[in-house]
Protein backbone atom coordinates (compact mmCIF):
# COMPACT_ATOMS: atom_id res chain seq x y z
CA UNK A 1 0.00 0.00 0.00
CA UNK A 2 1.12 3.55 -0.67
CA UNK A 3 2.18 5.39 2.43
CA UNK A 4 0.36 8.68 2.82
CA UNK A 5 2.79 11.50 2.62
CA UNK A 6 2.99 12.25 6.33
CA UNK A 7 6.27 14.00 5.93
CA UNK A 8 4.74 16.76 3.89
CA UNK A 9 3.18 19.51 6.01
CA UNK A 10 0.18 17.83 7.69
CA UNK A 11 -3.20 19.53 7.42
CA UNK A 12 -3.77 18.87 11.11
CA UNK A 13 -0.96 18.74 13.62
CA UNK A 14 -1.94 18.09 17.24
CA UNK A 15 1.02 18.75 19.47
CA UNK A 16 1.20 17.49 23.05
CA UNK A 17 -2.44 18.30 23.75
CA UNK A 18 -3.71 18.22 27.34
CA UNK A 19 -7.43 18.56 28.10
CA UNK A 20 -8.89 18.30 31.58
CA UNK A 21 -12.30 18.65 33.15
CA UNK A 22 -12.96 19.87 36.67
CA UNK A 23 -15.23 17.57 38.66
CA UNK A 24 -15.94 19.08 42.09
CA UNK A 25 -12.47 19.47 43.53
CA UNK A 26 -11.08 16.68 41.37
CA UNK A 27 -9.60 16.69 37.88
CA UNK A 28 -10.57 14.35 35.06
CA UNK A 29 -7.47 13.72 32.96
CA UNK A 30 -9.35 13.23 29.70
CA UNK A 31 -6.50 13.83 27.25
CA UNK A 32 -2.95 13.78 28.61
CA UNK A 33 -0.33 14.84 26.11
CA UNK A 34 -1.51 13.50 22.77
CA UNK A 35 0.35 14.30 19.56
CA UNK A 36 -0.81 13.25 16.11
CA UNK A 37 -0.77 14.38 12.51
CA UNK A 38 -3.26 14.02 9.70
CA UNK A 39 -2.03 14.54 6.15
CA UNK A 40 -4.19 16.32 3.58
CA UNK A 41 -6.55 13.80 1.97
CA UNK A 42 -5.89 11.17 4.60
CA UNK A 43 -8.31 9.45 6.98
CA UNK A 44 -6.91 8.90 10.43
CA UNK A 45 -8.95 6.44 12.51
CA UNK A 46 -9.04 6.96 16.28
CA UNK A 47 -10.10 4.02 18.46
CA UNK A 48 -10.36 3.25 22.14
CA UNK A 49 -12.86 2.25 24.78
CA UNK A 50 -15.63 4.45 26.09
CA UNK A 51 -14.29 7.29 28.21
CA UNK A 52 -10.72 7.16 26.89
CA UNK A 53 -10.95 10.72 25.58
CA UNK A 54 -11.73 10.33 21.88
CA UNK A 55 -14.58 12.85 21.78
CA UNK A 56 -12.70 15.22 24.05
CA UNK A 57 -9.78 15.15 21.64
CA UNK A 58 -12.11 15.71 18.68
CA UNK A 59 -13.81 18.62 20.39
CA UNK A 60 -10.51 20.14 21.42
CA UNK A 61 -9.33 20.03 17.81
CA UNK A 62 -12.38 22.11 16.86
CA UNK A 63 -11.85 24.39 19.87
CA UNK A 64 -15.27 23.46 21.20
CA UNK A 65 -13.35 22.58 24.34
CA UNK A 66 -10.25 24.62 25.05
CA UNK A 67 -7.09 22.68 25.83
CA UNK A 68 -5.15 23.22 29.05
CA UNK A 69 -1.91 23.10 27.09
CA UNK A 70 -0.53 22.00 23.77
CA UNK A 71 -1.21 23.22 20.25
CA UNK A 72 -3.59 22.40 17.41
CA UNK A 73 -2.10 23.50 14.11
CA UNK A 74 -4.53 23.52 11.22
CA UNK A 75 -2.96 24.27 7.87
CA UNK A 76 -0.04 25.76 9.77
CA UNK A 77 -2.07 28.06 12.02
CA UNK A 78 -2.47 27.51 15.74
CA UNK A 79 -6.19 27.25 16.52
CA UNK A 80 -5.59 27.29 20.28
CA UNK A 81 -4.28 30.85 19.96
CA UNK A 82 -7.24 32.05 17.89
CA UNK A 83 -10.33 33.84 19.06
CA UNK A 84 -13.36 35.69 17.76
CA UNK A 85 -13.68 36.31 14.04
CA UNK A 86 -10.43 34.53 13.12
CA UNK A 87 -11.61 31.36 14.86
CA UNK A 88 -15.07 31.60 13.33
CA UNK A 89 -13.55 31.83 9.86
CA UNK A 90 -11.35 28.85 10.56
CA UNK A 91 -14.28 26.81 11.83
CA UNK A 92 -15.94 26.81 8.44
CA UNK A 93 -13.08 24.70 7.22
CA UNK A 94 -13.46 22.16 10.01
CA UNK A 95 -16.72 20.36 10.80
CA UNK A 96 -18.02 17.73 13.24
CA UNK A 97 -20.43 14.79 12.85
CA UNK A 98 -21.82 13.28 16.02
CA UNK A 99 -22.55 9.77 17.22
CA UNK A 100 -26.24 10.20 17.93
CA UNK A 101 -27.72 11.51 14.69
CA UNK A 102 -31.25 11.89 16.01
CA UNK A 103 -30.26 13.84 19.11
CA UNK A 104 -28.05 16.19 17.13
CA UNK A 105 -30.94 17.46 14.97
CA UNK A 106 -33.31 20.06 16.40
CA UNK A 107 -36.67 18.23 16.48
CA UNK A 108 -38.73 21.36 15.78
CA UNK A 109 -36.89 22.54 12.69
CA UNK A 110 -37.37 21.39 9.12
CA UNK A 111 -34.57 19.50 7.41
CA UNK A 112 -34.01 22.28 4.88
CA UNK A 113 -33.53 24.84 7.67
CA UNK A 114 -31.27 22.51 9.65
CA UNK A 115 -28.97 21.98 6.70
CA UNK A 116 -28.88 25.65 5.70
CA UNK A 117 -28.25 26.93 9.22
CA UNK A 118 -24.43 26.83 8.95
CA UNK A 119 -24.74 28.97 5.79
CA UNK A 120 -26.76 31.57 7.66
CA UNK A 121 -24.27 31.61 10.52
CA UNK A 122 -21.46 31.97 8.00
CA UNK A 123 -23.24 35.01 6.56
CA UNK A 124 -24.41 33.69 3.20
CA UNK A 125 -27.19 36.21 2.60
CA UNK A 126 -28.42 35.12 -0.80
CA UNK A 127 -31.41 32.82 -0.16
CA UNK A 128 -31.28 31.32 -3.64
CA UNK A 129 -27.61 30.48 -3.16
CA UNK A 130 -28.39 28.83 0.19
CA UNK A 131 -31.16 26.80 -1.38
CA UNK A 132 -28.87 25.68 -4.17
CA UNK A 133 -26.22 24.53 -1.69
CA UNK A 134 -28.76 22.70 0.47
CA UNK A 135 -30.12 20.87 -2.58
CA UNK A 136 -26.66 19.98 -3.69
CA UNK A 137 -25.58 18.41 -0.40
CA UNK A 138 -28.89 16.65 0.25
CA UNK A 139 -28.69 15.02 -3.17
CA UNK A 140 -25.06 14.17 -2.56
CA UNK A 141 -25.94 12.15 0.54
CA UNK A 142 -28.62 10.25 -1.34
CA UNK A 143 -31.75 12.11 -0.24
CA UNK A 144 -34.32 13.70 -2.50
CA UNK A 145 -34.24 17.42 -1.55
CA UNK A 146 -37.81 18.04 -2.67
CA UNK A 147 -39.10 15.19 -0.53
CA UNK A 148 -37.10 15.79 2.63
CA UNK A 149 -36.45 19.54 2.95
CA UNK A 150 -39.89 20.33 4.35
CA UNK A 151 -40.05 17.45 6.85
CA UNK A 152 -39.13 17.17 10.53
CA UNK A 153 -36.39 14.94 11.98
CA UNK A 154 -38.75 12.50 13.71
CA UNK A 155 -40.01 11.39 10.32
CA UNK A 156 -36.62 9.85 9.56
CA UNK A 157 -34.80 6.71 10.67
CA UNK A 158 -31.42 6.78 12.41
CA UNK A 159 -29.59 6.09 9.16
CA UNK A 160 -31.42 8.87 7.33
CA UNK A 161 -30.77 11.29 10.19
CA UNK A 162 -27.08 10.50 9.88
CA UNK A 163 -27.27 11.31 6.16
CA UNK A 164 -28.84 14.65 7.07
CA UNK A 165 -26.07 15.34 9.59
CA UNK A 166 -23.48 14.54 6.95
CA UNK A 167 -25.21 16.90 4.52
CA UNK A 168 -25.18 19.63 7.15
CA UNK A 169 -21.47 19.12 7.77
CA UNK A 170 -20.74 19.41 4.03
CA UNK A 171 -22.74 22.52 3.31
CA UNK A 172 -19.90 24.98 4.03
CA UNK A 173 -17.45 23.07 1.84
CA UNK A 174 -15.13 22.13 4.70
CA UNK A 175 -11.68 20.65 4.24
CA UNK A 176 -11.62 18.61 7.41
CA UNK A 177 -14.33 16.65 9.24
CA UNK A 178 -14.13 15.07 12.66
CA UNK A 179 -16.52 12.10 12.56
CA UNK A 180 -17.28 11.16 16.17
CA UNK A 181 -18.63 7.60 16.11
CA UNK A 182 -20.90 8.30 13.13
CA UNK A 183 -22.08 4.69 12.86
CA UNK A 184 -21.99 3.37 16.43
CA UNK A 185 -25.72 3.88 16.93
CA UNK A 186 -26.64 2.22 13.64
CA UNK A 187 -27.50 -1.33 12.61
CA UNK A 188 -25.02 -3.46 10.71
CA UNK A 189 -26.83 -2.93 7.40
CA UNK A 190 -27.28 0.84 7.68
CA UNK A 191 -23.73 1.14 9.03
CA UNK A 192 -22.35 -0.16 5.74
CA UNK A 193 -24.42 2.39 3.78
CA UNK A 194 -23.14 5.29 5.86
CA UNK A 195 -19.51 4.14 5.74
CA UNK A 196 -19.71 3.90 1.96
CA UNK A 197 -21.31 7.32 1.84
CA UNK A 198 -18.51 8.88 3.90
CA UNK A 199 -15.93 7.38 1.56
CA UNK A 200 -17.79 8.74 -1.44
CA UNK A 201 -18.10 12.21 0.07
CA UNK A 202 -14.45 12.19 0.96
CA UNK A 203 -13.45 11.51 -2.63
CA UNK A 204 -15.98 13.89 -4.13
CA UNK A 205 -15.26 16.87 -1.88
CA UNK A 206 -11.56 16.20 -1.31
CA UNK A 207 -11.94 15.84 2.46
CA UNK A 208 -9.53 14.94 5.20
CA UNK A 209 -11.08 12.94 8.06
CA UNK A 210 -10.48 12.16 11.69
CA UNK A 211 -12.69 9.11 12.13
CA UNK A 212 -13.50 8.18 15.74
CA UNK A 213 -14.97 4.78 16.66
CA UNK A 214 -14.60 2.01 19.17
CA UNK A 215 -15.01 -0.77 16.61
CA UNK A 216 -11.70 -1.64 14.98
CA UNK A 217 -13.22 -3.36 11.96
CA UNK A 218 -15.28 -0.26 11.19
CA UNK A 219 -12.21 1.93 11.56
CA UNK A 220 -10.12 -0.26 9.30
CA UNK A 221 -12.72 -0.09 6.56
CA UNK A 222 -12.18 3.65 6.09
CA UNK A 223 -8.77 4.60 7.54
CA UNK A 224 -5.34 4.98 6.00
CA UNK A 225 -3.75 5.11 9.42
CA UNK A 226 -5.11 4.25 12.85
CA UNK A 227 -4.37 5.73 16.27
CA UNK A 228 -5.25 3.77 19.42
CA UNK A 229 -6.03 5.63 22.64
CA UNK A 230 -6.28 4.37 26.19
CA UNK A 231 -7.25 6.46 29.18
CA UNK A 232 -6.20 9.80 27.71
CA UNK A 233 -2.96 8.68 26.08
CA UNK A 234 -1.96 7.45 22.67
CA UNK A 235 -0.83 3.79 22.72
CA UNK A 236 -0.07 3.15 19.12
CA UNK A 237 -0.35 4.74 15.70
CA UNK A 238 0.47 3.32 12.30
CA UNK A 239 -0.70 2.37 8.81
CA UNK A 240 -4.00 0.44 9.07
CA UNK A 241 -2.85 -2.78 7.41
CA UNK A 242 0.33 -2.94 9.42
CA UNK A 243 -1.35 -2.15 12.75
CA UNK A 244 -3.99 -4.84 12.27
CA UNK A 245 -1.54 -7.46 11.02
CA UNK A 246 1.21 -6.78 13.58
CA UNK A 247 -0.05 -4.77 16.57
CA UNK A 248 2.88 -3.71 18.72
CA UNK A 249 0.99 -2.46 21.77
CA UNK A 250 -0.67 -5.06 24.05
CA UNK A 251 -3.81 -2.91 24.20
CA UNK A 252 -4.18 -2.88 20.41
CA UNK A 253 -3.88 -6.67 20.47
CA UNK A 254 -6.58 -6.86 23.14
CA UNK A 255 -8.96 -4.69 21.10
CA UNK A 256 -8.36 -6.89 18.07
CA UNK A 257 -9.18 -10.04 20.01
CA UNK A 258 -12.43 -8.59 21.29
CA UNK A 259 -13.99 -8.17 17.84
CA UNK A 260 -16.73 -10.72 17.26
CA UNK A 261 -15.88 -12.65 14.11
CA UNK A 262 -18.83 -13.86 12.03
CA UNK A 263 -17.43 -17.38 11.67
CA UNK A 264 -18.68 -20.22 13.90
CA UNK A 265 -15.36 -22.08 13.54
CA UNK A 266 -13.52 -19.33 15.33
CA UNK A 267 -14.25 -19.87 18.99
CA UNK A 268 -14.26 -16.53 20.74
CA UNK A 269 -11.17 -16.29 22.97
CA UNK A 270 -12.13 -16.06 26.64
CA UNK A 271 -11.99 -12.36 27.26
CA UNK A 272 -8.36 -11.59 27.72
CA UNK A 273 -8.07 -8.49 29.79
CA UNK A 274 -10.67 -8.56 32.46
CA UNK A 275 -11.91 -5.52 34.20
CA UNK A 276 -12.54 -2.08 32.88
CA UNK A 277 -10.36 0.97 32.42
CA UNK A 278 -9.43 2.68 35.69
CA UNK A 279 -10.82 6.11 36.51
CA UNK A 280 -9.31 9.03 34.59
CA UNK A 281 -9.49 11.00 37.85
CA UNK A 282 -6.64 8.97 39.28
CA UNK A 283 -4.95 7.23 36.33
CA UNK A 284 -2.27 4.63 37.14
CA UNK A 285 1.35 5.79 37.33
CA UNK A 286 3.72 4.89 34.54
CA UNK A 287 1.89 3.14 31.72
CA UNK A 288 -1.83 3.74 32.13
CA UNK A 289 -2.65 0.30 30.70
CA UNK A 290 -0.58 -1.59 33.25
CA UNK A 291 -3.51 -2.60 35.50
CA UNK A 292 -4.95 -4.72 32.67
CA UNK A 293 -1.80 -5.59 30.76
CA UNK A 294 -0.55 -9.18 30.74
CA UNK A 295 3.04 -7.99 30.16
CA UNK A 296 3.19 -5.36 32.90
CA UNK A 297 6.23 -5.30 35.17
CA UNK A 298 8.08 -2.99 37.56
CA UNK A 299 9.25 -0.64 34.84
CA UNK A 300 5.68 -0.18 33.60
CA UNK A 301 4.52 1.31 36.88
CA UNK A 302 7.62 3.48 37.26
CA UNK A 303 8.12 5.01 33.82
CA UNK A 304 5.71 6.50 31.32
CA UNK A 305 6.43 4.78 27.99
CA UNK A 306 7.19 7.18 25.12
CA UNK A 307 5.94 6.67 21.56
CA UNK A 308 8.76 4.93 19.66
CA UNK A 309 8.95 3.82 16.06
CA UNK A 310 8.74 0.02 16.01
CA UNK A 311 8.39 -0.41 12.24
CA UNK A 312 8.31 2.11 9.37
CA UNK A 313 5.50 4.53 10.21
CA UNK A 314 4.31 2.45 13.18
CA UNK A 315 4.79 3.93 16.65
CA UNK A 316 3.99 2.33 20.00
CA UNK A 317 4.18 3.61 23.57
CA UNK A 318 5.19 0.45 25.40
CA UNK A 319 8.22 -0.77 27.33
CA UNK A 320 7.73 -4.31 26.08
CA UNK A 321 6.12 -4.13 22.65
CA UNK A 322 4.93 -7.29 20.94
CA UNK A 323 7.36 -8.62 18.36
Amino acid sequence: MMQPAVRAEPLLNVDNLVVEYGLGNKTVHAVSGVSLQVARGETLGLVGESGCGKSTLGRAVLQLRRAKSGRVLFDGEDLTAMEGEALRKMRRRVQLIFQDPIASLNPRRRIGDIVSEPLIIAGVKDAAERKRRVHEVLSAVGLDPDLVAGRLPHEFSGGQCQRICIARSLVLNPEFIVCDEPVSALDVSIRAQILNLLEEMKARFGLTLLFIAHDLAVVKAVSDRVAVMYLGRLCEVGPSERLFARPAHPYTALLLQAIPVPDPDIRPAESVANGEPPSPIAPPSGCRFRTRCPRADQQCSAEIPELREVAPGQFAACHHPLA
Binding site: M1, V188, S189, R191, A192, Q193, L195, N196, E199, D215, L216, A217, V218, K220, A221, V222, S223, D224, S240, E241, F244, L256, I259, V261, P262
Partner: peptide
Protein backbone atom coordinates in the same frame (compact mmCIF):
# COMPACT_ATOMS: atom_id res chain seq x y z
CA UNK B 1 -22.41 -5.87 5.39
CA UNK B 2 -20.15 -6.50 8.40
CA UNK B 3 -16.76 -4.81 7.87
CA UNK B 4 -14.15 -7.56 7.62
CA UNK B 5 -10.88 -7.29 9.47
CA UNK B 6 -8.96 -8.92 6.65
CA UNK B 7 -10.28 -6.58 3.95
CA UNK B 8 -7.99 -3.79 2.77
CA UNK B 9 -8.88 -0.26 3.88
CA UNK B 10 -11.26 1.61 1.56
CA UNK B 11 -12.84 -1.57 0.17
CA UNK B 12 -16.47 -0.56 -0.46
CA UNK B 13 -18.83 -2.53 1.79
CA UNK B 14 -21.63 -4.52 0.19
CA UNK B 15 -24.40 -2.55 1.90
CA UNK B 16 -28.05 -3.58 1.75
Amino acid sequence: AIPKLDAAPHTPLPAI
